[in-house]
Design a protein around this nucleic acid. Structure first.
Lengths: 117, 117
DNA sequence: GGTTGACCTGGAGTGCACTCCGGGTGGGAT
DNA sequence: ATCCCACCCGGAGTGCACTCCAGGTCAACC
């Protein structure tokens, strides 16, 4: 079991973000101790790793929410989860390709500026 | 000279975005015809290409604004422009590296899901 | 047993980058 | 001449993803 502070440390999400994610259902209701304070399980922390990955690759919260629902719905949704991740993978690849393309333009611009100095 | 509609077509920015960019100073005051309608020069369109590149690589508007000011200030700012673009290039590279790293995680997850089917 | 600090809640506020609105003007095809 | 459509303007509104706030509770260390 992890305290909020430990999860903040582990995952890099702020405590406000964690509370927000729980409120909107991206995290399932987190366990509480006797005083009502959150205690995150190993599984919660693992799921937050996935959330971090999806978020940092630009997946909108609405889509993460759909993925979270598939995970909760049980193993029979695994084919759907694969489809969702494959689609996201294509979008990530498109982002990478696009960035690489734009980067070439930036490199050209820098070269040009160097050439006129 | 290009009409707003032509620039929308050329650059992919909406007319509202174009007006917004002019309002905040990311575009210098665009020329007008007798009726007060915008007429974009070749130079304006070229600059919009740069803006598109910077925007699509995640540069915040505030930074693009600084770059725009350097461009307007004249050729003596070219070393500063190079610095700014080099810094941005590093950030673009970091984005690409980060996406590629996260993508590996997604691939692993997909493989795992495939393995349990 | 007092103080500090981590934590709780619902709800309001923020920052970014647009995007839309309403009311008005002008120009070009029919 | 008339109609339509592109365009004008200032300003309000939107969507996303948080982030902050006020007021309160507990627990643990000195």
């Amino acid at each position: 079991m992890y305290t909020p502070a430990e999860v903040v440390e582990e995952t890099g999400f702020s405590i406000d973000t964690l509370r927000y994610y729980e409120k909107i259902g991206l995290l399932e209701r987190i366990g509480r101790n006797a005083a009502g304070q959150r205690r995150f399980s190993q599984e919660d922390v693992g799921w937050l790793g996935m959330v971090r990955c999806l978020r940092d690759t630009g997946m909108p919260i609405a889509t993460m929410l759909r993925f979270a629902e598939l995970v909760r719905a049980g193993d029979h949704t695994i084919p759907d989860r694969i489809k969702l991740l494959e689609e996201h993978d294509r979008q990530v690849q498109a982002q990478i390709d696009n960035l690489a393309e734009r980067q070439r333009y930036i490199h050209h611009k820098i070269s040009y500026y160097r050439s006129v100095l």
